[in-house]
Design a binder for these strands. Structure first.
Length: 305
RNA sequence: GGUUCCUUGGCCGAGUGGCUAGGCACCGGUCUGCAAAACCGUCUACGGCGGUUCGAAUCCGCCAGGAACCU
Protein backbone atom coordinates (compact mmCIF):
# COMPACT_ATOMS: atom_id res chain seq x y z
CA UNK A 1 0.00 0.00 0.00
CA UNK A 2 1.15 3.50 -0.81
CA UNK A 3 2.12 5.65 2.10
CA UNK A 4 1.43 9.16 3.20
CA UNK A 5 3.67 10.62 5.85
CA UNK A 6 2.11 13.51 7.67
CA UNK A 7 4.72 15.63 9.37
CA UNK A 8 2.97 17.98 11.74
CA UNK A 9 3.69 20.17 14.73
CA UNK A 10 3.33 23.67 16.11
CA UNK A 11 4.45 26.74 14.24
CA UNK A 12 8.16 27.39 14.46
CA UNK A 13 9.11 23.88 15.49
CA UNK A 14 11.16 23.18 12.37
CA UNK A 15 8.84 21.30 10.02
CA UNK A 16 9.99 22.98 6.83
CA UNK A 17 13.69 22.15 7.13
CA UNK A 18 13.09 18.56 8.03
CA UNK A 19 10.45 18.04 5.39
CA UNK A 20 12.73 19.25 2.61
CA UNK A 21 15.49 17.03 3.87
CA UNK A 22 13.16 14.02 3.89
CA UNK A 23 11.67 14.81 0.51
CA UNK A 24 15.13 14.94 -1.00
CA UNK A 25 15.95 11.62 0.59
CA UNK A 26 12.91 9.89 -0.93
CA UNK A 27 12.81 12.04 -4.02
CA UNK A 28 9.20 12.87 -3.38
CA UNK A 29 7.23 16.11 -3.55
CA UNK A 30 5.84 17.93 -0.55
CA UNK A 31 2.17 18.61 -0.04
CA UNK A 32 1.63 21.53 2.25
CA UNK A 33 -1.19 21.45 4.78
CA UNK A 34 -1.06 25.07 5.75
CA UNK A 35 -4.14 27.22 5.47
CA UNK A 36 -2.16 30.42 5.00
CA UNK A 37 0.85 29.43 2.95
CA UNK A 38 -1.77 28.46 0.41
CA UNK A 39 -2.21 32.11 -0.44
CA UNK A 40 -0.19 34.21 -2.81
CA UNK A 41 1.62 37.22 -1.46
CA UNK A 42 2.28 36.11 2.11
CA UNK A 43 5.65 34.33 1.94
CA UNK A 44 7.36 36.16 4.77
CA UNK A 45 4.59 36.33 7.34
CA UNK A 46 3.55 32.72 6.88
CA UNK A 47 7.14 31.46 6.88
CA UNK A 48 6.55 29.72 3.58
CA UNK A 49 9.42 27.62 2.22
CA UNK A 50 12.07 29.78 0.60
CA UNK A 51 12.82 29.94 -3.10
CA UNK A 52 15.82 27.71 -2.54
CA UNK A 53 13.66 25.02 -0.98
CA UNK A 54 11.03 25.41 -3.66
CA UNK A 55 13.60 24.82 -6.36
CA UNK A 56 15.08 21.78 -4.64
CA UNK A 57 11.80 20.01 -3.95
CA UNK A 58 8.49 20.33 -5.72
CA UNK A 59 5.89 21.79 -3.38
CA UNK A 60 2.13 21.78 -3.72
CA UNK A 61 -0.39 24.20 -2.23
CA UNK A 62 2.11 26.97 -1.64
CA UNK A 63 1.04 30.37 -2.92
CA UNK A 64 -1.63 29.03 -5.21
CA UNK A 65 -4.67 30.99 -4.09
CA UNK A 66 -5.59 34.63 -4.41
CA UNK A 67 -6.21 36.40 -1.14
CA UNK A 68 -9.79 37.00 -2.21
CA UNK A 69 -10.45 33.32 -2.96
CA UNK A 70 -12.82 31.35 -0.79
CA UNK A 71 -11.33 28.19 0.56
CA UNK A 72 -12.01 25.80 3.39
CA UNK A 73 -10.92 22.54 4.94
CA UNK A 74 -13.43 20.75 2.77
CA UNK A 75 -11.94 22.13 -0.42
CA UNK A 76 -8.56 21.14 0.89
CA UNK A 77 -9.76 17.61 1.49
CA UNK A 78 -10.87 17.09 -2.08
CA UNK A 79 -7.96 18.96 -3.65
CA UNK A 80 -5.44 17.10 -1.54
CA UNK A 81 -7.02 13.69 -2.14
CA UNK A 82 -7.02 14.30 -5.84
CA UNK A 83 -3.40 15.36 -5.75
CA UNK A 84 -2.32 12.47 -3.56
CA UNK A 85 -3.96 10.00 -5.86
CA UNK A 86 -2.12 11.46 -8.86
CA UNK A 87 1.22 11.64 -7.15
CA UNK A 88 0.97 8.14 -5.71
CA UNK A 89 1.11 6.82 -9.25
CA UNK A 90 4.76 7.80 -9.34
CA UNK A 91 5.72 7.78 -5.68
CA UNK A 92 5.33 5.14 -3.01
CA UNK A 93 5.85 7.66 -0.29
CA UNK A 94 4.39 11.14 -0.18
CA UNK A 95 5.06 13.79 2.37
CA UNK A 96 2.46 16.11 3.81
CA UNK A 97 3.66 18.83 6.11
CA UNK A 98 1.91 21.65 7.86
CA UNK A 99 0.29 22.77 11.03
CA UNK A 100 -3.30 23.53 10.09
CA UNK A 101 -5.05 21.12 12.36
CA UNK A 102 -8.39 21.05 10.66
CA UNK A 103 -6.84 20.65 7.23
CA UNK A 104 -4.80 17.70 8.36
CA UNK A 105 -7.88 16.12 9.88
CA UNK A 106 -9.85 16.74 6.72
CA UNK A 107 -7.22 14.97 4.66
CA UNK A 108 -6.68 12.07 7.04
CA UNK A 109 -10.17 11.50 8.43
CA UNK A 110 -12.45 13.37 6.08
CA UNK A 111 -14.92 16.07 6.79
CA UNK A 112 -18.68 15.65 6.42
CA UNK A 113 -20.12 17.03 3.23
CA UNK A 114 -22.49 19.90 3.76
CA UNK A 115 -23.89 22.18 1.09
CA UNK A 116 -21.84 25.21 0.14
CA UNK A 117 -23.47 28.28 1.55
CA UNK A 118 -24.77 30.94 -0.75
CA UNK A 119 -22.89 34.14 -0.18
CA UNK A 120 -26.03 36.23 0.14
CA UNK A 121 -27.47 33.94 2.79
CA UNK A 122 -24.27 34.04 4.78
CA UNK A 123 -24.16 37.79 4.58
CA UNK A 124 -27.74 38.23 5.71
CA UNK A 125 -27.23 35.96 8.71
CA UNK A 126 -24.16 37.90 9.72
CA UNK A 127 -26.07 41.12 9.41
CA UNK A 128 -28.80 39.70 11.59
CA UNK A 129 -26.15 38.68 14.09
CA UNK A 130 -24.53 42.12 14.13
CA UNK A 131 -27.81 43.94 14.47
CA UNK A 132 -29.71 41.75 16.88
CA UNK A 133 -27.14 39.51 18.47
CA UNK A 134 -27.00 35.79 18.65
CA UNK A 135 -30.35 35.14 20.31
CA UNK A 136 -32.40 35.25 17.13
CA UNK A 137 -29.97 32.94 15.38
CA UNK A 138 -30.02 30.56 18.31
CA UNK A 139 -33.78 30.34 18.49
CA UNK A 140 -34.01 29.69 14.77
CA UNK A 141 -31.46 26.94 15.11
CA UNK A 142 -33.37 25.49 18.03
CA UNK A 143 -36.44 25.16 15.83
CA UNK A 144 -34.67 23.79 12.78
CA UNK A 145 -32.18 21.52 14.48
CA UNK A 146 -32.90 20.87 18.16
CA UNK A 147 -30.41 18.02 18.18
CA UNK A 148 -27.47 20.15 17.24
CA UNK A 149 -28.74 23.01 19.36
CA UNK A 150 -28.10 20.85 22.40
CA UNK A 151 -24.57 20.07 21.27
CA UNK A 152 -23.19 23.38 20.06
CA UNK A 153 -21.25 25.84 22.04
CA UNK A 154 -24.04 28.40 22.09
CA UNK A 155 -21.62 31.22 22.74
CA UNK A 156 -19.59 30.55 19.65
CA UNK A 157 -21.37 32.54 17.00
CA UNK A 158 -19.36 31.04 14.15
CA UNK A 159 -20.52 27.55 14.94
CA UNK A 160 -24.10 28.56 15.64
CA UNK A 161 -24.40 30.60 12.49
CA UNK A 162 -22.82 27.94 10.37
CA UNK A 163 -25.25 25.33 11.61
CA UNK A 164 -28.17 27.58 10.82
CA UNK A 165 -26.76 28.40 7.39
CA UNK A 166 -26.66 24.75 6.56
CA UNK A 167 -30.19 24.20 7.77
CA UNK A 168 -31.53 27.07 5.70
CA UNK A 169 -29.48 26.18 2.66
CA UNK A 170 -30.43 22.53 2.58
CA UNK A 171 -33.81 22.45 4.24
CA UNK A 172 -32.45 19.71 6.46
CA UNK A 173 -31.06 19.82 9.98
CA UNK A 174 -27.34 20.41 10.15
CA UNK A 175 -26.96 17.42 12.43
CA UNK A 176 -28.24 15.16 9.66
CA UNK A 177 -25.03 15.84 7.76
CA UNK A 178 -22.81 14.91 10.64
CA UNK A 179 -21.85 11.29 10.35
CA UNK A 180 -19.14 11.18 12.95
CA UNK A 181 -17.37 8.60 10.85
CA UNK A 182 -13.74 8.47 9.86
CA UNK A 183 -13.44 8.00 6.11
CA UNK A 184 -11.28 5.23 4.75
CA UNK A 185 -8.31 6.27 2.67
CA UNK A 186 -6.73 4.14 -0.04
CA UNK A 187 -3.28 4.69 1.41
CA UNK A 188 -1.51 4.21 4.70
CA UNK A 189 -1.22 7.30 6.87
CA UNK A 190 1.74 7.70 9.19
CA UNK A 191 1.68 10.71 11.43
CA UNK A 192 4.85 12.09 12.93
CA UNK A 193 4.67 15.05 15.27
CA UNK A 194 7.54 17.40 15.87
CA UNK A 195 7.67 19.21 19.19
CA UNK A 196 10.09 21.08 21.38
CA UNK A 197 10.29 22.07 25.01
CA UNK A 198 8.12 25.09 25.47
CA UNK A 199 10.85 27.57 26.37
CA UNK A 200 12.80 26.65 23.31
CA UNK A 201 9.79 26.75 21.03
CA UNK A 202 8.84 30.19 22.30
CA UNK A 203 12.37 31.43 21.80
CA UNK A 204 12.40 30.18 18.24
CA UNK A 205 9.05 31.82 17.56
CA UNK A 206 10.19 35.14 18.95
CA UNK A 207 13.36 35.09 16.94
CA UNK A 208 11.56 34.11 13.80
CA UNK A 209 9.25 37.07 14.12
CA UNK A 210 12.24 39.39 14.44
CA UNK A 211 13.69 37.76 11.35
CA UNK A 212 10.44 38.28 9.46
CA UNK A 213 10.51 41.96 10.28
CA UNK A 214 14.10 42.15 9.10
CA UNK A 215 13.15 40.42 5.86
CA UNK A 216 10.50 42.97 5.07
CA UNK A 217 7.26 41.83 6.65
CA UNK A 218 6.14 45.44 6.88
CA UNK A 219 6.30 45.92 3.14
CA UNK A 220 4.58 42.63 2.56
CA UNK A 221 1.78 43.55 4.93
CA UNK A 222 1.51 46.98 3.34
CA UNK A 223 1.12 45.46 -0.08
CA UNK A 224 -1.84 43.32 0.98
CA UNK A 225 -3.37 45.92 3.26
CA UNK A 226 -6.11 46.88 0.78
CA UNK A 227 -7.45 43.32 0.99
CA UNK A 228 -7.41 43.25 4.76
CA UNK A 229 -11.08 42.39 5.14
CA UNK A 230 -10.66 39.01 3.49
CA UNK A 231 -10.50 36.04 5.78
CA UNK A 232 -7.15 35.10 4.32
CA UNK A 233 -5.71 38.11 6.09
CA UNK A 234 -7.26 37.42 9.44
CA UNK A 235 -3.85 36.04 10.12
CA UNK A 236 -1.21 36.43 12.77
CA UNK A 237 1.54 38.69 11.51
CA UNK A 238 -0.75 40.78 9.35
CA UNK A 239 -3.67 41.78 11.50
CA UNK A 240 -1.32 43.21 14.10
CA UNK A 241 0.56 45.27 11.52
CA UNK A 242 -2.72 46.53 10.10
CA UNK A 243 -3.41 47.98 13.55
CA UNK A 244 -0.06 49.69 13.33
CA UNK A 245 -0.82 51.08 9.88
CA UNK A 246 -4.12 52.38 11.23
CA UNK A 247 -2.25 54.25 13.93
CA UNK A 248 -3.84 52.25 16.72
CA UNK A 249 -0.67 50.54 17.86
CA UNK A 250 2.96 51.54 17.84
CA UNK A 251 5.24 49.25 15.89
CA UNK A 252 7.00 47.71 18.89
CA UNK A 253 3.71 46.76 20.42
CA UNK A 254 2.46 45.26 17.17
CA UNK A 255 5.60 43.16 16.89
CA UNK A 256 5.23 41.97 20.47
CA UNK A 257 1.65 41.02 19.69
CA UNK A 258 2.74 39.03 16.67
CA UNK A 259 5.10 37.09 18.88
CA UNK A 260 2.49 36.57 21.54
CA UNK A 261 -0.22 35.50 19.12
CA UNK A 262 2.18 33.12 17.44
CA UNK A 263 2.99 31.57 20.80
CA UNK A 264 -0.70 31.26 21.58
CA UNK A 265 -1.27 29.65 18.21
CA UNK A 266 1.48 27.14 18.82
CA UNK A 267 -0.16 26.16 22.08
CA UNK A 268 -3.54 25.71 20.41
CA UNK A 269 -1.92 23.47 17.87
CA UNK A 270 -0.37 21.34 20.58
CA UNK A 271 -3.67 21.12 22.41
CA UNK A 272 -5.30 19.82 19.27
CA UNK A 273 -2.55 17.41 18.28
CA UNK A 274 -2.15 15.98 21.77
CA UNK A 275 -5.47 14.16 21.48
CA UNK A 276 -4.39 12.20 18.46
CA UNK A 277 -2.83 8.99 19.75
CA UNK A 278 -1.78 8.00 16.27
CA UNK A 279 0.93 10.63 16.26
CA UNK A 280 4.49 9.45 16.84
CA UNK A 281 6.21 12.32 18.61
CA UNK A 282 9.78 13.48 18.24
CA UNK A 283 11.06 16.11 20.62
CA UNK A 284 13.56 18.22 18.73
CA UNK A 285 14.83 19.67 21.99
CA UNK A 286 16.23 16.25 22.77
CA UNK A 287 16.86 14.87 19.32
CA UNK A 288 19.10 16.25 16.59
CA UNK A 289 17.57 16.88 13.23
CA UNK A 290 19.73 14.14 11.76
CA UNK A 291 18.52 11.62 14.35
CA UNK A 292 14.96 12.70 13.83
CA UNK A 293 15.33 12.22 10.11
CA UNK A 294 16.73 8.75 10.62
CA UNK A 295 13.93 7.80 12.99
CA UNK A 296 11.35 8.88 10.49
CA UNK A 297 13.03 7.05 7.64
CA UNK A 298 13.11 3.87 9.70
CA UNK A 299 9.52 4.28 10.56
CA UNK A 300 8.58 4.42 6.91
CA UNK A 301 10.34 1.16 6.07
CA UNK A 302 8.02 -1.80 5.45
CA UNK A 303 7.52 -3.88 8.55
CA UNK A 304 9.44 -7.14 8.42
CA UNK A 305 7.32 -10.16 7.54
C1' G B 1 12.55 72.24 53.28
C1' G B 2 7.00 73.22 52.08
C1' U B 3 2.16 72.22 49.58
C1' U B 4 -0.96 69.02 46.82
C1' C B 5 -1.82 64.39 44.55
C1' C B 6 -0.90 59.21 43.58
C1' U B 7 0.35 53.74 45.05
C1' U B 8 -5.24 47.89 43.34
C1' G B 9 -3.40 40.65 41.10
C1' G B 10 2.05 39.60 35.59
C1' C B 11 0.07 44.25 32.91
C1' C B 12 -4.05 47.79 32.10
C1' G B 13 -8.06 49.45 34.93
C1' A B 14 -13.08 50.36 37.93
C1' G B 15 -14.45 50.65 42.76
C1' U B 16 -14.93 55.91 48.71
C1' G B 17 -17.23 51.53 54.76
C1' G B 18 -20.14 45.36 54.22
C1' C B 19 -22.54 42.41 47.88
C1' U B 20 -15.18 38.05 44.96
C1' A B 21 -15.70 44.78 38.62
C1' G B 22 -13.81 44.08 33.98
C1' G B 23 -10.07 43.53 30.05
C1' C B 24 -5.37 41.44 28.46
C1' A B 25 -1.43 38.02 29.40
C1' C B 26 -0.05 33.28 31.75
C1' C B 27 -1.84 28.29 32.30
C1' G B 28 -5.57 24.57 30.86
C1' G B 29 -9.39 23.17 27.35
C1' U B 30 -13.29 22.88 23.07
C1' C B 31 -13.18 22.02 17.94
C1' U B 32 -16.21 18.06 11.38
C1' G B 33 -16.82 23.95 5.48
C1' C B 34 -14.00 31.08 6.68
C1' A B 35 -9.71 27.12 11.66
C1' A B 36 -3.04 31.47 12.02
C1' A B 37 -10.59 31.48 12.89
C1' A B 38 -14.19 31.34 16.86
C1' C B 39 -15.26 29.93 21.80
C1' C B 40 -14.77 28.21 27.11
C1' G B 41 -12.41 27.51 32.09
C1' U B 42 -8.74 28.97 35.84
C1' C B 43 -5.64 32.63 38.34
C1' U B 44 -9.77 36.04 44.28
C1' A B 45 -5.47 41.77 44.37
C1' C B 46 -5.81 46.37 46.94
C1' G B 47 2.51 49.63 49.12
C1' G B 48 4.06 48.72 54.81
C1' C B 49 2.78 49.35 59.99
C1' G B 50 -0.70 50.98 63.47
C1' G B 51 -5.61 53.07 64.64
C1' U B 52 -11.20 53.97 64.21
C1' U B 53 -15.29 50.41 63.37
C1' C B 54 -19.33 44.76 64.52
C1' G B 55 -16.86 45.26 59.57
C1' A B 56 -11.66 49.01 55.63
C1' A B 57 -9.09 48.53 49.14
C1' U B 58 -12.43 52.39 50.84
C1' C B 59 -11.92 56.72 57.08
C1' C B 60 -7.44 58.57 60.37
C1' G B 61 -2.01 58.64 61.59
C1' C B 62 2.99 57.40 60.63
C1' C B 63 6.53 55.24 57.19
C1' A B 64 8.18 53.89 52.11
C1' G B 65 8.04 54.75 46.82
C1' G B 66 6.40 58.05 42.80
C1' A B 67 4.37 62.79 40.34
C1' A B 68 3.48 68.09 40.06
C1' C B 69 4.11 72.84 41.98
C1' C B 70 6.45 76.41 45.59
C1' U B 71 11.10 78.18 48.10
Amino acid sequence: MKKLLVLLGPTGVGKTDLSVSLAEYWGCPIISADSRQLYKGLPIGTAAPSGDYLSRVSHHFIGTLNLSDYYSASEFESDALQLVSNLHQKHDILLVTGGSMLYIDALCNGIDQVPTIDEGLRKSLYELFEEEGLDRIRSQLKMLDPVFYDQVDLKNHKRVIHALEVCLMSGKPYSSFRTNKVKERPFEIIKVGLMRNRDQLYQRINRRVDAMIAEGLLDEAKSVYPLRTYNSLNTVGYKELFNYFDGEWILDFAVEKIKQNSRIYSRKQMTWFKRDERIFWINLSETTEEEAKQQIINRMLPLPG
